[in-house]
Amino acid sequence: MTEIYQTKAIFRIEYELILNVKSFRDDRGWSQEVLSGKMGFTETFVGKCESLDQPEKYNLRHIGLLKKVFGFKSLDDLFPNGMPKDEQIVILYKKVPKKKADGSDSKIMENVVVEIVVVDGETKAEVNKQIKSKSRRL
């Protein structure tokens, strides 16, 4: 049986920004390390932001850098499908081996989203406290 992991609560806008940046990066053929360098950060920065099991995520300070690096005219360009709903989510995911070029399994694992759950709460801290409390009771 595959183990299912859970992120802490994040806002949907944070998650969609991560997905969009990854798409923009892939469209340009840039690795995570290349984008990190273009933003002026260590080469592991973007990888941490894109990983579901790392707490680092893009923040307001990074949005202007992303706009500039991708050559966008407006911050709205970071969200080509429109602004996401103002809600918090928890992402359930599993870890699976990445595929090598020959199709065989690599030793490197990647996260695959199983489900996105909308959660109630005004702040991340409030929701994460609720989640922690529920998990202790199980």
Rank of each mutant, 00 (worst) to 15 (best):
S51R: 10
D53V: 05
G64W: 01
G37S: 06
W30D: 04
L65H: 01
G29I: 09
S51F: 03
K48Q: 14
T42P: 06
N59I: 03
T44R: 15
Q54D: 14
Q54W: 02
D27A: 14
T42I: 12
K48A: 11
S36Q: 02
V46R: 03
E43Y: 10
F45Y: 15
F41I: 02
M39Q: 00
Y58P: 00
K38Y: 13
F41N: 08
S51V: 05
T44M: 14
Y58S: 07
D27P: 12
K38C: 03
K38D: 00
S51Q: 11
N59D: 11
G37Y: 04
K38F: 13
R28M: 08
V46Q: 02
V46K: 02
F45A: 07
E43R: 09
R61W: 00
V34C: 04
D27T: 12
K57G: 01
R28Y: 01
I63V: 15
F41M: 10
K57F: 01
L60E: 12
R28P: 03
S36I: 07
M39N: 00
N59C: 04
D27W: 10
P55L: 03
T44Y: 14
G64L: 12
R28T: 03
G47K: 13
R61E: 01
P55R: 08
Q54H: 13
K38E: 07
R28N: 09
H62D: 10
W30A: 06
S31Y: 08
S36T: 03
K48E: 10
R28C: 05
L35H: 07
S36M: 04
K48Y: 10
T44K: 15
E43F: 07
Q54N: 15
I63W: 05
Q32K: 14
E56W: 12
E50Q: 04
L52K: 07
S51L: 04
G64K: 05
L60A: 14
P55D: 09
E50C: 03
Q32W: 06
E50I: 01
P55E: 10
L52E: 00
Q54T: 09
F45H: 13
T44S: 14
E43G: 01
M39H: 02
L35I: 11
Q54A: 13
K38G: 04
